[in-house]
Write a protein that binds this DNA or RNA. Structure first.
Lengths: 192, 192
DNA sequence: TTTAAAAACAAACGATTGTTTGGTTTAAAA
DNA sequence: TTTTAAACCAAACAATCGTTTGTTTTTAAA
């Protein structure tokens, strides 16, 4: 063990390693990707990765955390410009769809790797997911809705439909923002 | 090779084997389940399973086919009693939710194992999924909707929300039929 | 320029993976 | 009751898995 600890080097490749892991996990799923696959993609030998992460599960956990961070940051940024409740929800949905379908491998990992697929760390993964989704609970709380509308069902329906869209999304048939707009439009006019 | 082929024996365990595979695939995902896990669950040695199925991928393919068969049969049965377009769609959604969340491990496999997780047979899996979902396209086609309603978005939203519900479903907070009713209600009153 | 820590290499570890092979038991047709 | 195919067992196969260990290279502080 070293006597003193230094800052990471300039050529530290922890982030590139995490990027490669996120991209592969997002595309093929957790179990379908081996540590050797990731190492090959980042130009590193398999054993070398263990300098940066103590295990494959920890690698997944790190991508989850980064995914939640990116999603949260992106949605918060989109919300900053909006005041009206419906506009705020729409902005959040657009940001959600955009980062999910286009921008971030990390975010896609959250939706394509289910906690129960990795039982050993499912207790660590679930709260990360839930914490992010709570933003939508608050956004829907603020909507002026008819008295008999179940806000919980509304949230589950909206987020479910958006999250599932990664299974059929095709850039040629509409952008992520358009998808979010369409879905919200279907709901909105009945609920006001 | 035998000179003549006989019918399967009375004690043939192909179905029990398929049942065990479906249950495990549905609960843990395809890659998280080993052939030995399945063998143990059905009380068989690992090698013996290869008498019934030539590979693990074929085992998955068979569960997919059975899942689609069960879903289709269940939905068709529910549709037989209904005439009015909205009632038909609601009956289909209820049946879809019910078999998905409660009744069939086979059906759950279709939603929890993504074709791209098993690249080698993804071309076989996708059309099975699509063929079933086409029923909903037809049901929505028959709805009397305002001219500006995008039927494709409606289908994707409804099915997406229902399919995603397996990620949050909790029997204590409403039955599958109630979930389907709630979601359809959210959409219905705005679209007529 | 020396030196210590950061980072990666090189090579292997034991365990588990899907699968194959050859022989044995069991049910049912003859 | 004999016989044949169905069904399973028992044991191993090569390949791949995540991971560990000991050593070497590289960066940057001293």
């Amino acid at each position: 063990m070293p006597d003193t600890t230094r800052a990471p080097r300039q050529d530290n490749r922890r982030i590139q390693l995490l990027d490669a892991a996120a991209a592969l996990f997002a595309e093929h799923g957790f179990h379908a990707v081996s540590m050797r696959d990731i190492a090959r993609n980042v130009g590193m030998l398999p054993g070398s990765m263990y300098y940066h992460f103590p295990s494959k599960n920890d690698l997944l956990l790190a991508t989850y955390e980064e995914g939640v961070r990116q999603l949260s940051q992106r949605v918060d940024l989109a919300l900053a410009d909006e005041d009206e409740p419906w506009a705020r929800l729409e902005a959040a949905c657009k940001a959600h769809a955009e980062i999910l379908l286009n921008e971030s491998d990390y975010a896609q990992v959250i939706l394509s790797v289910f906690p129960r697929d990795v039982a050993a760390i499912s207790d660590n993964l679930k709260p990360l997911r839930d914490g992010y989704e709570d933003r939508f609970r608050i956004l829907i709380e603020a909507l002026p809705l008819a008295a008999d509308v179940d806000r919980n069902s509304l949230r589950l329906m909206l987020l479910g439909a958006l999250n599932w869209s990664k299974n059929w999304y095709n850039p040629r048939h509409g952008s992520p923002r358009e998808i979010a707009t369409d879905m919200l439009a279907l709901l909105k006019r009945s609920l006001v």
